[in-house]
Write a protein that binds this DNA or RNA. Structure first.
Lengths: 260, 260
DNA sequence: ACATCAATGTGCGATACCGTACATAATGGT
DNA sequence: ACCATTATGTACGGTATCGCACATTGATGT
């Protein structure tokens, strides 16, 4: 059975092979403390990991793909407040003492994660100061992302916000091609799909992206960065600082694939 | 000299007399640990307590008045992401490991606070688990406030947002009268002053507020609550849960002064 | 009482986005 | 190859807010 095989695999978990940046940054002894409780899970597109108001059973350290954190307004319309990839984890508010999730978390690009029960994480944190400090600092970086989004939503035009979002999604992917419909993006950004269509058309005509039936290819990262508002760079810088790496820590190796 | 007198006063600091809800909620032993390092400061209108990108020297436990946390966008325009009164503290991100402030904090209503150096707070936290847990939970509540604001900025109309903001400000005051110009409010909400003028006029004609040359009086809280978006209640509820109090914990004793 | 300044009300063309509808194009299944 | 479905482009009146300008009103100091 699959679960059994996963369990075997996890018991052999080698830290160096882990792509989640938080887990990778831990001292070996503290990683070992947590590793016994990690289990690897596949994340399917559209899968919901936490629901607003519901208890947080697991904390997920994302490895591949990315997850949206969505605020749910009373009119039922979700709106993205943050995007999480291999640089982070979701459900970490449990370490602040939260018992329930204040937002929905949903998989926007299929991938995988290592998850741990809330209880096991809290237990590990009590004995692993570096893990605790790193998760707190990550929480702070995520908080900054949300705060920047609050200002961005109020001030920046859709063209800029779309470019910002595509860059953030690209950073959290490993390839230039994203499986995203305009409808999905419109939901994330809280605007009409037709409005996204117009903004995306502009980016496509500029040669920054190529768009075709649920598939977006990033053609020109630099062009997109110029088209995006400052919010992209501000948040990216914060995550770079978090891991103390000089060159763009979040930027995938393979970027700008079709450009010179 | 004033500083000497304050010092004397602080050395006699009685927890029961403190209006800051975080400090008031501490176990006596832990309060004592912190009290020796607290100093009382007056907060003048417009005073800036932290600047974006600058180190956080002091953490402020607000007692009277309220403080805005403002994101600074590159066009120089500030935009409020959170409002803090006696229910909380500012600069608390130092306990997440932040070294600098990611936002501006500015006094919007004159009052007072107890402040402590970052170093002393970190020291106290290491020895006072309840203080640490309470500050972490407060941080989480503030995070929710910011996330709600992100969604609110994208979705809700100015009329609703203005009503929400007035309610939040009223909760953090002790009287119904606020010294606020439309210009200040417009800056907080990130809109034109003339737009605020129209929205405020609507609220005034409805009898919810009275507006006169930099002074707003809340006449009808219930009316305002109906005019506000859900975001007000969602955030207020979170702070009530934080302090575990059943009836509106944040609502000042003296509300709806002119209403039956 | 008067002058001055700050705060507010208002007007108006421009614009971004809404809300909705419909047409077209690409994809996937049979 | 065909069809059903999904994704995208586009149109159009409506609305909230912008960006700017100017008039008016209330507070303040002398």
């Amino acid at each position: 059975m699959l679960p059994r095989r996963w369990k075997i695999r996890v018991s052999r978990l080698v830290q160096a092979s882990i792509r989640n940046r938080v887990l990778a940054a831990l001292p070996a002894t503290e990683f070992a403390l947590l590793a016994a409780h990690l289990s690897r899970v596949e994340l399917a597109l559209g899968e919901r990991l936490h629901s607003a108001g519901e208890p947080i059973s697991y904390v997920y350290f994302v490895e591949r793909g990315f997850i949206s954190a969505l605020a749910l307004l009373s009119d039922g319309q979700p709106l993205e407040i943050g995007l999480i990839g291999a640089e982070g984890a979701i459900g970490v508010s449990v370490i602040l003492g939260a018992e329930t999730s204040y937002c929905e978390t949903m998989c926007q690009r299929a991938g995988s994660a290592y998850r741990v029960t809330t209880a096991a994480l809290k237990d590990a944190i009590a004995r692993a100061p570096h893990l605790r400090d790193l998760l707190l600092r990550y929480t702070h970086a995520f908080h900054i992302q949300v705060a920047q989004t609050a200002a961005c939503n109020a001030h920046h035009e859709l063209g800029q916000r779309l470019a910002r979002w595509l860059l953030a999604a690209h950073d959290r992917s490993r390839v230039a091609e994203l499986s995203l419909t305009q409808d999905m993006i419109a939901t994330m950004l809280g605007v009409r799909r037709s409005t996204v269509s117009i903004a995306a058309g502009t980016l496509q005509r500029a040669g920054f992206i190529r768009y075709q039936h649920g598939h977006i290819t990033i053609l020109d990262r630099v062009g997109l960065e110029n088209a995006a508002c400052e919010c992209y760079e501000a948040v990216a810088e914060e995550y770079r600082a978090l891991f103390g790496v000089y060159p763009k820590a979040l930027t995938p190796v393979k970027n700008r694939p079709d450009l010179g």
